[in-house]
Design a protein around this nucleic acid. Structure first.
Lengths: 261, 261
DNA sequence: ACGAGACTTCCATCATGTGGGAACCCTCGA
DNA sequence: TCGAGGGTTCCCACATGATGGAAGTCTCGT
């Protein structure tokens, strides 16, 4: 039953986290007990015991419609203490003005191991907005434009390793590995990633990575719109704006890190 | 060794959460391993093992100066999925304009079991600001003006029970239970709580509770300033502003809850 | 350079968490 | 009204995951 070989001595705690990540990955709908048994391959009684503990601690709650498990308030409260909150705030202004300039929705995602998490999004003033993803949503690294942008700044080996790690989940999202590899390769040479027909038919996405002080891609920003808002001749302008915003966030990030040493 | 009688079958997970809460309560400084052994009464080896797991999961990190444990990015990311995030956002505008009106720092706290957690704060334009508490800070319910405000809207029995639960921690903050009881009783009749010489000598705080649809105090807002900014003749004005803001947030909260049923 | 206190690792031991089974309850759709 | 699928609670034998004492390593301050 142990899929990882590590005898770390903290099985139940690790299971609890795995549950939290799964629940977050299915936000905001939430997951039923049955879903969790399927996903985690554990008996319902074991899961139920852990879930009850998580619920007592306020780390998960039950949605009122379905009796689905969703992320609880306590996690937000705990998360307010983390330096990551400052990252969100430090990027907020840049993101806002980027959205004002492009007129379409913009998204900021960070990497979390082999996932991307959307940490913020701003809506532009153009009447049609493509709101592909909620704040807090967790996706396998690679499927979103932001994910591909981050992968395009890693070594090919590292990128491939992450795609391997996500293989089954990518499949369940109906994404071909070869398509991703190609997209990443293109991103590597161009410096940005473009996806036509991103989430929904007729939409288009552009993304650029955000680098930390070591040059590692820790985050990415993207803009998504209906396809004709991103014609070829407008790409250079949009990419320029995205890259300027990415550089601004990257600089602020590095300054912030050094300031608090 | 078991301080609670419940044989719940999830000892290690509960310990992990207790650690997270303790670390959050000592944000942003963080805690050393020794601090945790003292606070939790567990051997260092056991704590170390759990801490390593929490660290591997990104739920805690090490601060670079001291090797102190602090809340990790992953908790922020998980917390973005919770409905509690909406509460923060829905209150943000009200809080901003409240701060603009009073000119001093204002604080929004929510209740988390027997704690208060500061979820947001805004700074006014008066040149001297009393920034008593960081966003994310967790304190035993009762010591802050916001805490007292919440207690003043509970039954005396419930309030007393919470103070009992927090007895030891209140002591370590150097707060007399009798003083709190008096403060709460005053709050009950007046409808607001005032604390002279709040955190630091020469400061003053005012707080009012925020009620949910059932009339339960789920949050509170306060303003803190140097004492002469809150002279007696200005109290009615300030309380009026605080209560208006509290009502606004309460209404938004209830609307939001019904909208998503 | 030294010592004390803090941190980390090891490992024998056993309490803790596990998971199968089964009964019961609840909700929803037919 | 009924049935089916899910959710919840209980029990218990088992083994293994978690425990914590002890010993080793690191990191300060003096």
């Amino acid at each position: 039953m142990a899929q990882d070989g590590a005898r770390s001595g903290t099985q139940s705690i690790e299971r609890a986290f795995a549950i939290l990540r799964l629940v977050a990955a299915n936000s905001p709908r939430g997951l039923r007990l049955t879903d969790l048994t399927r996903e985690m391959g554990l008996p319902a009684s074991t899961l139920h015991r852990i879930l009850k503990t998580l619920q007592d601690g306020g780390l998960i709650e039950r949605s009122r419609e379905g009796r689905r498990y969703i992320i609880g308030s306590e996690l937000t409260l705990l998360g307010l203490s983390s330096p990551m909150r400052h990252f969100r705030e430090l990027a907020s202004g840049t993101l806002r003005s980027l959205s004002d300039q492009v007129g379409d929705a913009v998204f900021l995602s960070v990497r979390s191991d082999a996932d991307t998490v959307c940490v913020d999004r701003k809506i532009g003033d153009f009447p049609i907005q493509v709101l592909s993803i909620e704040i807090g949503s967790r996706r396998p690294l690679g499927i979103s434009a932001n994910g591909a942008a981050m992968l395009s700044r890693m070594t090919t080996g590292k990128a491939a390793a992450i795609l391997d790690q996500n293989a089954d989940r990518l499949q369940s999202f109906g994404v071909e590995r070869a398509v991703l590899m190609e997209r990443i390769a293109a991103g590597r040479t161009l410096g940005y990633v473009q996806i036509r027909h991103a989430i929904v038919e007729g939409t288009s996405a552009l993304a650029v990575p955000i680098l930390d002080v070591l040059g590692q891609p820790v985050a990415a920003i993207s803009t998504i719109a209906i396809a004709w808002r991103q014609p070829d001749h407008r790409i250079p302008l949009l990419i320029g704006l995205l890259q300027a915003a990415a550089a601004e966030i990257s600089t602020a990030l590095i300054e912030d890190a050094t300031r608090r040493r």
